[in-house]
């Protein structure tokens, strides 16, 4: 039985959700990967397909072309700044944001940034736009830091999102994760989201759960995925059961189908 838990956010509630997570982790096997790959291969695509939880939540509806903006840059800069502040406690989170932005600009100056990357966007931005990126990132890192400070179990900021290339299906899956909470050998993922959770927030969390398990070399799934919506003061969680993993995989394939149909309709 797949279950979605919905709670009002407080430090105690978050800790309870972590403590009460299932103790046993489920694993995806090679058979699961082959089966998923076969299903994605069955959904033809002219271009390379990129799917994530947001597309699942929007049922594959087309989105506008991605563009960097202070809002889209805040998570990347904010998470990196929090990681930096944890490694060097003498830094405030705001100092860490400044250093992270400088670091991004240095990548461009030293020729390591490719066009279209965050670094190249920042290099072309005016000082006032950089200021706004800094303000957005500071909001993000403070929100994430405040949530993390209250967690009793050991935690770390995820070094990157989970990416999984589905074999021979021209499909890349991206699972977002902000904090990784360790409980013995198992792990719990926490994602911070903007706005308020919609009706499809549960499928979105399941998609993140499944992609994270696929991206793990051993296929080990997180025991729970927690979605935190600080603006709404709400937390939702999904357990890493086999049923939830299957449900996440099904939603991803359905999204690919819906996406393909919409592309065909647009081409017609």
């Amino acid at each position: 039985m797949s279950a979605l838990t919905h709670r009002r956010y407080s430090r105690n509630v978050l800790n309870r959700l972590i403590e009460e997570a299932p103790s046993e982790s489920k694993s995806l096997t090679d058979d699961h990967r082959h089966s998923l790959s076969a299903r994605f291969r069955g959904v033809a695509s002219a271009d390379h397909r990129r799917l994530d939880a947001w597309m699942v939540e929007r049922a594959g509806q087309p989105m506008g072309a991605f563009r960097w903006s202070p809002t889209t840059a805040k998570r990347v800069v904010g998470n990196a700044a929090l990681r930096r502040a944890l490694h060097d406690p003498s830094l405030t989170r705001f100092d860490a944001v400044d250093i992270e932005l400088t670091d991004q600009l240095l990548r461009v100056a030293s020729g390591y940034a490719r066009s279209g990357s965050l670094a190249s966007y920042l290099a072309q931005a005016s000082p006032s736009v950089l200021g706004l990126v800094s303000a957005e990132a500071a909001n993000w890192t403070t929100q994430l830091g405040e949530a993390a400070e209250g967690i009793a179990a050991p935690w770390s900021v995820a070094t990157s999102d989970a990416y999984y290339d589905v074999a021979r299906a021209r499909t890349t899956l991206r699972g977002r994760r902000d904090l990784i909470i360790n409980r013995g050998l198992s792990r719990i993922l926490l994602r911070v989201r903007a706005g308020a959770p919609g009706k499809s927030a549960g499928p979105g969390l399941r998609a993140d759960l499944t992609i994270d398990a696929l991206a793990d070399a051993t296929g080990l799934a997180a025991t729970r995925v927690i979605g935190l919506w600080p603006e709404a003061g709400v937390v939702l969680s999904v357990d890493g059961t086999m049923e939830d993993l299957r449900s996440g995989a099904r939603d991803l394939v359905r999204t690919a189908v819906a996406h393909q149909r919409q592309q065909l309709a647009r081409a017609a």
Partner: peptide
């Protein structure tokens, strides 16, 4: 917002308009 990150806003209209456009398109 710009002042909150220590930016000295000299050209109030020009700088804030740029920041606003970068945010909302």
């Amino acid at each position: 917002r710009l002042m909150s990150v220590g930016l000295d806003v000299d050209d109030a209209f020009g700088e804030t308009l740029l920041a606003w456009r970068a945010d909302v398109g």
